[in-house]
Design a protein around this nucleic acid. Sequence first.
RNA 1: GGCGGGGUAGCCAAGUGGUAAGGCAGGGCUCUGCAAAAGCCUCAUCCGUCGGUUCGAUUCCGACCCUCGCCUCCA
Length: 480
Amino acid sequence: MALKLFNTLQRDKGLQEFVPLDPARKKVGMYCCGPTVYDFAHIGNWRTFVFADLVRRTLEFSGYDVQHVMNITDIEDKIIKRVREQKTSLREFTGKFEIAFLDDLKSLNCKEPHVKPRATEYIAEIISLIEKLIARGIAYKAPDGSVYFSITKYQGCGCHYGQLLKLNFDEMRAGERVSSDEYEKESVADFALWKARVPDDGDIFWPSPFGEGRPGWHIECSAMSMKVLGESFDLHLGGEDLKFPHHEDEIAQSEGATGKPFVKYWLHGAHLLVEGKKMSKSLGNYFTLRDLQAKGFSGREVRYLLLTAHYRETFNFTLDGLNGAKTALARIDECVGKLRELAGENTGQAQESETLITNFSYALEDDLNISLAWAAVFDWVRETNLWYNSQLQDETFEARITRAKVAANKLAAWTKVDSVLGIGVKTAVEIPAEILELANARAEAKKSRDFKKSDAIRDELKAKGWVIEDTPKGIKLKKI
RNA sequence: GGCGGGGUAGCCAAGUGGUAAGGCAGGGCUCUGCAAAAGCCUCAUCCGUCGGUUCGAUUCCGACCCUCGCCUCCA
């Protein structure tokens, strides 16, 4: 089976097989709308970026050579406002949040995009794209000095505006709340390509053939994606709210300028709710990754939880779920840990015929059915535990050799699957001397059958954040 | 008002025209001196409501109720 995806461009046609534009069917260009760096990204944003990471890793798992591009929007209304409020410089302000964003991305174990273009570093490309649109008669300079994209002219060229959703301008409430400084547009649906400098912009502006100003929001993505990936590329991702107007406008600008199809597959990730409600600061259910880390959850746990539901469904993110994520991951860690122990120095090979890999691939190829993929993982965990238990009795040399090989192969299969999940194995934490001492003291108390004392030490360990387990092979210490 | 998603066990969440994956929580059991965030087993007569099609519907069709998103910066 081949990878099938839900393409918003062809939404009425059901799932589509993914076939890259590259004639060799090897290289894949993928662009994901990145963060606007005016604040820390919230958990809803992270759902989208973890989704993008899943897409990339799945493509790589399928053997494609992916070029992953994610823009950094470092010029925008809110940014300008805050830069002025905080009396700082644009670069200093956005740089701070860009670094925080990349740190968080790493905490969530998302692969870093290969190219991360900043809008402010592509002003020349943006200007030349706007010039192209003006030359084609699709963009016009309004009396206020801004340059707008004319949807009427675009449609007049035989182009289709409304590729990602059904638009009905007569029924839409577009323009109801349009701010007064946009009165100069010929039509309410037109959007800004270049915003003329206004006093509130302070010293944040760039010179251009159309006068001083700054780029509109949509144009940066068209300019940067086409510059890095070419005028036509394979995949463009983003949150579902971006379908309109942002993505629709990107298509219009790009296809209006080049006359070529812009993107082959558009993928949109659904939003999430937090504790069943729309996330909002006033409800107290607005979380950044940092907020969750402060509550004692790891990026790994957040990643797992964000990765439990299908990307096109609204997901209900809860703290309860996050606690569950902890337990679920521990189950996987325990299982993989046992395999490592058995495999020892042996290295195995992931066999395509392994049930785990077969079921996992099957699930992912069906429009990234990650829930089903996890089912494959947990089924495998149970089978592996059962197998492990059955091995405990036989301590003959031959049995040990065989089981080491089997374990190594299983481990290799897990590693392959984990190249997509990005969960890894919890890294072993160093046990502090104090904890080790307590554990030894407990062992001695146990030996002399002073259970009262040994249980007291166990409680003490727990209070210090360590769980002690007696296994047939000796004690095991785990950090809570 | 227009357009588009959803409603599946206590919670999260897949899925199918033929009788409901997986995770968490709960219950039982095993190992254990006792335990365990150790392992195994178990846990929806039922898939928002009401009609219809069908031998058979949670799955298809219709109506209704509820909910979420976009139409304005927005993941």
